[in-house]
Amino acid sequence: MATLRVEIVTAERTVLETEADMVIAPGAEGQLGILPRHAPLITALAPGAIRLKHGAAEEETIVVSGGFLEVRNNRVIILADAAERDDEIDIARAEEAVTLARERIQSRASAVDLERAVQSLHRAQVRVKVARRRRTAGAPPVSRGG
């Protein structure tokens, strides 16, 4: 069966290059699942978790804070503003970011700041969630190709 070639790149580095059987990504219009032989697609991404499935059981998660996703010829290319693999996330720091963002929302400075604070809260929450899930599952590091 065909698999998907997945590349996640940011302006600073290539975060991940691997094969996967399915990609689940937070599109701007909602979650979308991509299987092999998907039609060519370009979509904006919302901040959230990208899940790569390897077979039925194995799964790895990458947190992105917005960007784009392109699908073409069984290649999924994700241009992320920032991306972290789940094993790279520092839970303490992410939790700190959540607290900080909450405080900022409560202090309510200006509309622009508020919007930014809400966004960073959202990003931080996704990171905490992903990192926690990884810790409780106690999953061994997933083997990575490339």
């Binding site: 701007a28 060519p40 370009i42 960007g67 784009f68 073409r72 503003d81």
Partner: peptide, 23 residues
């Protein structure tokens, strides 16, 4: 290549262009 754009091509362009300048 005939891409599907989500939400639509203009919306994707609007998110892409500022990032393109950054980049």
């Amino acid at each position: 290549v005939d891409y599907i754009y989500e939400p639509d091509s203009l919306a994707v362009l609007a998110t892409l262009l500022p990032r393109f300048v950054d980049m």
